[in-house]
């Protein structure tokens, strides 16, 4: 099957003749290297200029991703290969994304629900504690102290 004009099939290994191996022209190698050097200078330059913390991480990762894309497409030759290899590589990135989303999602929202204040169990415990404290106060103070406060119905 062909997709985007290139082969995409998992039987890449099963086929007979592959297409003639694509040799990239020499200037392309040096061009990619020059671009990578420029992007390195940009990375350092942006950090020296200084940005607010969140933005600086985003920009640093964005520039690094552009460099990574160049390396993967051209040095690793993925641009000219059977699309199945791209599929394998991109799917690993997808799972990394999933990994980060779930883990950092948990990390960032810890303490969002504070168990001590937000559950029925805690609320019931407070009621019982109040009742006990009142009963204790009533028995310690001279008899005839105000009866214990009416216990509110436990609510969910």
């Amino acid at each position: 099957m062909k997709l985007l004009g290139r082969k995409l099939d998992s039987s890449a290994a099963a086929h007979g003749h592959e297409d003639h191996v694509h040799v990239m022209p020499l200037p392309m190698y040096f061009g990619v290297f020059a671009a990578l050097l420029v992007l390195t200078v940009v990375t350092v330059g942006v950090s020296v200029i200084g940005l607010p913390p969140f933005l600086s991480i985003v920009v640093a990762i964005a520039v690094a991703t552009v460099k990574a894309t160049l390396v993967v497409l051209y040095f690793m030759h993925l641009r000219y290969e059977n699309l199945f290899y791209s599929f394998i590589f991109v799917s690993s990135l997808f799972f990394v994304l999933l990994f980060f989303l779930f883990t950092l999602g948990d990390t960032a929202f810890r303490g969002f629900v504070i168990p001590e204040q937000d559950t029925a169990v805690w609320r019931n415990e407070q009621v019982i504690l109040k009742r006990e404290a009142a009963a204790k106060a009533a028995s310690e103070s001279p008899a005839g102290g105000a009866p214990a406060a009416q216990t509110p119905a436990p609510s969910n």
């Binding site: 990375t43 950090s47 600086s56 990762i61 690094a64 460099k67 990574a68």
Partner: peptide, 12 residues
């Protein structure tokens, strides 16, 4: 290393 360098060395 392309990712390590900015994340470790260029934290501002």
């Amino acid at each position: 290393w392309i990712y390590l360098f900015p994340l470790l060395y260029l934290v501002r």
